[in-house]
Amino acid sequence: MDQYLSFLGEVDPVRGVVKTESGEVSIRGRVLVFKGGRGSTVGSYVIYAMRQQGSSPLCMVVKEAEPILIAGCVIAEIPLLVVEDYEGFRDALKTKRRVRYMRGSGVIYAW
């Protein structure tokens, strides 16, 4: 998802989908790769809500992290990773089907 995301308004926490202009994308139980958070501080609560209902991503990978997103991931206990070379990572993902992240390892595998 090559964009910034406001969890309030652009994400449906009940179904675990992101609403984009070209349609809905399910993020439930997946690795969510996006540029970073934007918008309302209520966003932290939306991330928490998704985790509570089991509709959250397993892990988030971003270009840059801001306080609302970080606070949301901390309270929801979802790993949040910042990649140094976001563009390179995004391009590499285009030919991969699976991503694995070992909690606490700081290394992401894709194949």
Partner: peptide, 27 residues
């Protein structure tokens, strides 16, 4: 992530995000 070197003691916290209409069931 904000580059803080340490924490700082505060004298007054003001908590926002307490309206049900805004934060919903989850908040």
């Amino acid at each position: 992530s904000m580059g803080a070197d340490r924490l700082v003691e505060i004298v007054h916290a003001h908590v926002s995000g307490v309206s049900f209409s805004n934060i919903g069931v989850y908040g």
